[in-house]
Design a protein around this nucleic acid. Structure first.
Lengths: 304, 304
DNA sequence: CAGATGATATACGTAAATGTATGGAATCAC
DNA sequence: GTGATTCCATACATTTACGTATATCATCTG
């Protein structure tokens, strides 16, 4: 069926490693191979697809357009291979093996650890991989098994559970208020230091839409890193949005202008095929339960 | 990073072949390997994932539950690898290489060949793979590059072009009318032989919804194969739905009860990443243009 | 019931893929 | 500028993986 015989699938793995590391040697180190072997793999793949994939130089390999065009396919292969191994890990009946979770930076770093700690205490053989990033990972491409999402799951073949809305309010650290005073009106905000987003990822663009009420306001501290923003706020650099349930845990944070409120609708999503897997099922349920109790903190209003 | 080193990706290919063919020997023939090699691959993979994948017997290998659970992953790998090779085929500027098209059986067998013949006459280096099936192939999983769909494309990351609606009417072959007479009312239909669908695939389920107006009617000839239905109708077995533009080509088909009409909304869909590929671009445009002229046949009503 | 066919498993020689070692060229540090 | 580092390329040795051949068993065929 194939004309001269399909190239080895291992070549794709090597190809991706070279693409990611930028050199034969670095790729070889990562793969546990040697540099000549990696070079041979690339040679063979180039001959198989009939195109130059890299322009060789002594400080590394520069990918050609053809190589960049193939990159997403190679990434899908890697994701799928990893997902296959995850699916194979652990036994069919017991809760064991690896499950990979994707969540936003804030949720992943501030909220999930406690939930997952409890889960792992209950199931000692369960291995959790947590990807805390504001770039949405694709469940259909098996980049993760379970995701906590702030956007409604549009795709079919995904099993999703609606959690509710996480409310965000304006907060500042006590030390900031002591130094700069407390803004009592929306207009007063313009005279304060505001903390906000920098780069535009898909996730942040969605956030910005909800922030539109403050369009005129300019941020004096920007970062595309949610955690950096959180730390800046807690360090007293300025005023920014903060998840209410999180703020309730930290008495040194002051709630400002309580009438300003944003809400993030939240879902837990899993690939349908995984619902028969005990470890995924159990993790899914734990995330749903944990996030529900987390959200409960929204209802109790904090006195300023 | 990996504990003892990831298994070779080639093992997954071998694994899938064994799963599909049901024996080491058959898989070996398909892959261009030998039976001992395939056996070693399976052994190695079983050891790597730590689970039995097949129960060996002398008349073949029976997949275990674990193997079946891994099958979809292996299939995705195969699809992606094939898509990568397709993407790599041909040069960047010229229209050459392979493009894989998915369409329904009727469209794929009756309509597309003419369109694609013209396309290939224009671009002799273009290789077309046509999958004519009523099971929807997933573009996100790279099972095909371009698809002709009868459902609105919900998923993002897909570039789609709306074609319009294909109208279907009730038809019978002239020979059938001569033998059984021509039904003039909807009630009269109950005394006639009707041709319709059998099994329920996702595609057919969607069709059935549109057929609901005829729910009470029972089909006297059923098949899950659209082409078989077409041929049965043309052979004078009975009355069935037929795409109007197709019926206009065959003078021996008689249009019955013209007030009964169904419509299939039609799209041409392609993965967004492929829009820079000349061969996909050109094929996409040709399909859009060809289907638009095909649909034009709807407007001119045929005298019964 | 005998023979053909097709399946897995094992033994063994060979070819292919990998690793080791070395050379040469570019970049960086001091 | 000189030494250290990092990279790719090449030559050579070795291990690994593959194919061939064969044995054995089950099933289908006449």
């Amino acid at each position: 069926m194939e004309s001269p015989s399909e190239p080895s699938w291992d070549f794709y793995r090597t190809f991706l490693a070279v693409l990611q590391h930028g050199s034969l040697s670095a790729a070889a180190r990562d793969l546990g191979l040697t540099q000549p072997t990696v070079g041979r793999h690339i040679d063979a793949l180039e001959k198989a697809v009939g195109a130059e994939l890299f322009t060789r130089s002594q400080q590394g390999l520069l990918p050609t357009d053809a190589a960049l065009a193939l990159k997403p396919y190679a990434e899908t292969l890697a994701n799928t291979a990893a997902a296959l191994l995850r699916a194979a890990s652990g036994s069919k009946d017991k809760v064991s093996g690896t499950v990979r979770i994707s969540a936003s930076e804030v949720i992943g770093t501030e909220v999930l650890p406690a939930i997952l700690a409890e889960l792992q205490a209950k199931y000692p053989d369960l291995i959790v991989e947590l990807s805390a990033s504001d770039t949405v990972e694709d469940l259909l491409q098996r980049e993760a098994d379970i995701a906590v999402r702030m956007v409604a799951p549009a795709q079919e073949a995904l099993l999703s559970r609606h959690i509710g809305t996480i409310t965000l309010g304006l907060f500042a650290h006590r030390s900031y208020i002591e130094r700069h005073g407390k803004p009592e009106t929306r207009e007063a905000l313009r005279r304060h230091k505001l903390i906000g987003f920098d780069r535009q990822t898909a996730y942040i663009r969605m956030m910005r839409k909800r922030y539109s009420m403050l369009d005129g306001v300019s941020f004096s501290f920007r970062s595309d890193h949610s955690i950096a923003l959180h730390n800046a706020l807690r360090a007293g650099i300025g005023i920014g949005f903060y998840q209410m349930p999180l703020a309730r845990r930290d008495a040194s944070l002051v709630h400002l202008l309580p009438e300003i409120e944003l809400s993030l609708d939240t879902w837990v999503v899993m690939h349908e095929n995984l619902k028969t897997s005990p470890r995924c099922r159990v993790t899914f349920d734990a995330l749903v339960a944990g996030l529900l109790t987390y959200i409960k903190g929204n209802n109790a209003e904090e006195p300023s």
